[in-house]
Design a protein around this nucleic acid. Structure first.
Length: 217
DNA sequence: TGCCAGGCCGGGT
DNA sequence: ACCCGGCATGGC
């Protein structure tokens, strides 16, 4: 991992991205529960497809943990547009059981728990890995946890800020160690990385000098 | 048309 | 401890 000399590089990157793109208003979603569902459905999937799935759930008036769990057999059909729908149905149901049985499906009941404790609980749910857990913690529960995703990794790798072998925890620590612990900052930063990644840091495209980050290396 | 999308898991080395 | 295929739909 790396990141020698300039321990302000992450600040520079953030300012550059924010100046270029402005606030991203993440997470797209009206309620913490919708965000949790979206976090699971968007695994390796285009957000547009996830929106269709969430719309289906809303139209069925099932965007509520208790009701969704009670109608679990309708989930595969409803979330079909988000892809991997049988797999994701199982994952969503696992999460719903955890949320309803452990917290009565109420977000307020999470508030008494420590972030690390919740993170461990989320990671123990089958189908919830580090990015999904951290997305839920940051965007649904407003906990200061930095979310690392494929774009984050690709951007940092391509700009030689981390080694190609760096694992999830290493990258997360890189951000959390070099930024102030601030929910709004983490929120915007991750959203901006996704934004710049979609536009300028695609797969199988080397490194373009149009990228706003190109010149601050 | 083929490639890709805001991962995660399980089996094989 | 890695590495890789499977999982699926819809947009460009």
């Amino acid at each position: 991992m790396i990141k020698p000399a300039d321990n302000k590089i992450l600040d520079k990157i953030y300012r550059s991205l924010f100046t270029t793109f402005g606030p991203q208003h993440w997470w797209p979603g009206d309620s913490p529960f919708e965000i949790m569902v979206g976090a699971i459905l968007t695994q390796n999937t285009n957000w547009q497809n996830v929106e269709k799935a969430i719309d289906n759930i809303k139209k069925a008036r099932l965007l509520n943990p208790h009701r969704l769990l009670q109608n679990r057999d309708r989930i595969p059909y409803l979330i079909r547009p988000s892809g991997f729908y049988k797999l994701k149905s199982r994952r969503l149901i696992s999460f719903l059981k955890y949320f309803v049985e452990g917290y009565d499906g109420k977000v307020e009941n999470f508030h008494k728990k420590e972030t690390e404790f919740l993170r461990d609980e989320l990671l123990s749910i089958p189908g919830i890995g580090p990015e999904t857990a951290d997305s839920i913690l940051l965007y649904a529960l407003n906990r200061p946890v930095f979310v690392v995703d494929a774009y984050t990794r690709r951007i940092l790798t391509r700009h030689k800020l981390i080694s190609i072998n760096a694992d999830y925890e290493e990258i997360r620590k890189f951000f959390e160690d070099n930024l102030r612990k601030d929910v709004q900052l983490y929120n915007e930063y991750h959203a901006l990385l996704v934004r710049v990644g979609k536009e300028f840091c695609k797969k199988n495209v080397p490194l373009c000098d149009n990228c706003p980050l190109y010149h601050i290396l």
